[in-house]
Design a protein around this nucleic acid. Structure first.
Length: 427
RNA sequence: GGUGGGGUUCCCGAGUGGCCAAAGGGAACAGACUGUAAAUCUGUCGGCGUCAGCCUUCGGAGGUUCAAAUCCUCCCCCCACCA
């Protein structure tokens, strides 16, 4: 099979392993055959930034755009106020309007920057608050609610999961979520001719709710496509590092940390992730897979994955900085032989702390840098041999930082474990 | 509104007057081995600490007691069934 811009995007998604469920495979394939088709995916503003768990849907819309289609990026300004029960095992706290709209604005800017970087085109971003806010309770109940039977809604996984378990319940608010999302799809169908909604594996119920509404209310045909739930080979949930979610915002997750997340991908996942998270084509990925199999210890596939995703999200300039930092910290050279200015630049995104006058003892410094949660834990870490100063292990739990510890008289590099750095500045 | 069952340290979950900073599991962090991988083994896992000990925690507020996560009172929240 050939892969090029003219190939049906549906086949490409299939090859990438991104297709989990589809409502009508033949119909959808036909729909996507000619360019210029419309599809959408929603992003609820539940945080200030998108995170890498949003990357598959986001990238898929971008792939659509690159294939000549007309994807719509929907901000869930309204649905974010309600709370999606899908995949959640308990009721969530409501967020207030200002918070949700503020996040929606941030995420909209983020999506625009991302799409422009990767396609050179401006994305079409809409906010469902714009049409849902106009709707009255009577309209919602008569014009939308009438098309859904509770019996059918109760059959949905997101609802059933909450009802069948004894300890949790579901409020009417969250129960209604699928109706709102269904209405979004209907609205976009009517206004923009949108006939496909894509989403994560847990979105099947919500998406098909929209298909139902379009069929009953407009006698139209619409398609649903969901992605598989992405897990790692060792069974962990994808997308969380030790520190929490990996965000796309450089302010929330530094480009360095972002790159490090990807470079740490385990062998068993790396080829699959190249398919999910890069634009590299089949031929190129097969090549990488062969090289990786021949020499896994070189981590070639991980390096490509990390570089591709970092460029995609943060751009090439940031990648170059990150590579310089990575080389300084994980390269062969002795930390002490590196020029302090280079070192400081490499550790730009690492926590740092400046002291003037009296220096506290090492455990306190580790706490100040956020490398250790408490002084007690810091002492334990030192005893366990986890702490190094300028590349040398520290043995003394009460070590006092002093002049000779500072490279170039101004800079000391602390490390906990293999990957956690902190910078101490003098003056 | 009524009846019953619950709310324990990041999560699950044991604990029904002192032996409880609280079993066990998971997650997490670290060490060893490696390839900034996985698996495995080991250690740590409330805070402070001169490592003796001190302080704070078991939904919230009070109370009983020499002593409470455990008993009592009131309140808040969750779940089930009934209305």
């Amino acid at each position: 099979m050939h892969r090029s811009g003219t190939v049906n995007i549906f086949d490409e998604l299939t090859w990438r392993g991104l297709v989990h469920q589809i409502s009508d495979p033949d119909g959808l394939r036909t729909y996507l055959k000619a360019p210029g088709q419309t599809m959408y995916c929603g992003f609820d503003p539940t945080a200030e930034s998108l995170h890498i768990g949003n990357l598959v849907p986001l990238l898929s819309l971008v792939r659509m755009l690159r294939a000549g289609h007309k994807p719509i990026f929907l901000m869930g300004g309204a649905t974010g106020l309600i709370g999606d029960p899908s995949g959640k095992d308990k009721e969530r706290e409501l967020s207030n309007l200002d918070a949700v709209q503020g996040r929606a604005a941030n995420i909209k800017a983020q999506i625009e920057a991302f799409v422009e970087r990767n396609t050179g085109q401006k994305p079409c971003v809409v906010n469902n608050y714009d049409w849902v806010k106009e709707m009255s309770a009577i309209e919602l109940l008569r014009d939308v609610g009438k098309y859904f039977t509770v019996n059918w809604m109760l059959g949905k996984e997101s609802v059933r999961g909450r009802i069948e378990r004894d300890e949790v319940g579901i409020s009417y608010t969250e129960f209604s979520y699928m109706i709102l999302q269904g209405y979004d799809f209907y609205h976009l169908y009517k206004e923009m001719g949108c006939r496909l909604q894509i989403g994560g594996g847990d979105q099947w119920g919500n998406i098909t709710a929209g298909c139902e509404l379009i069929r009953k209310k407009a006698a139209g045909e619409a398609y649903a496509l969901t992605f598989p739930l992405i897990t790692t080979a060792s069974g962990k949930k994808f997308g969380k590092s030790e520190k929490g979610a990996i965000f796309m915002s450089a302010a929330m997750t530094s480009p360095y940390a972002f790159y490090q997340f990807w470079i740490n991908t385990e062998d068993a996942d790396v080829i699959r992730f190249l398919k999910y998270y890069t634009f590299l084509d089949e031929e190129r990925i097969n090549e990488i897979a062969a090289e990786h199999e021949a020499a896994p210890h070189l981590r070639g596939a991980q390096k490509i994955l990390a570089a591709e995703t970092t460029i995609m999200v943060h751009g090439e300039d940031e990648l170059n900085k990150v590579l310089a930092a990575t080389d300084a910290l994980f390269g062969k050279g002795d930390l002490k032989s590196i020029d302090p200015a280079t070192l400081a630049a490499a550790l730009e995104s690492a926590p740092s702390k400046s002291y003037t006058g009296e220096l506290p003892d090492l455990p306190q410094v580790l706490v100040d840098l956020g490398l250790c949660p408490s002084k007690g834990q810091a002492r334990k870490d030192i005893q366990a041999g986890a702490i190094s100063l300028n590349g040398d292990k520290v043995a003394d739990t009460a070590h006092m930082l002093a002049g000779p510890d500072f490279l170039g008289g101004a800079l000391a590099v602390l490390r906990k474990g293999k990957k956690n750095y902190g910078l101490v500045r003098l003056g």
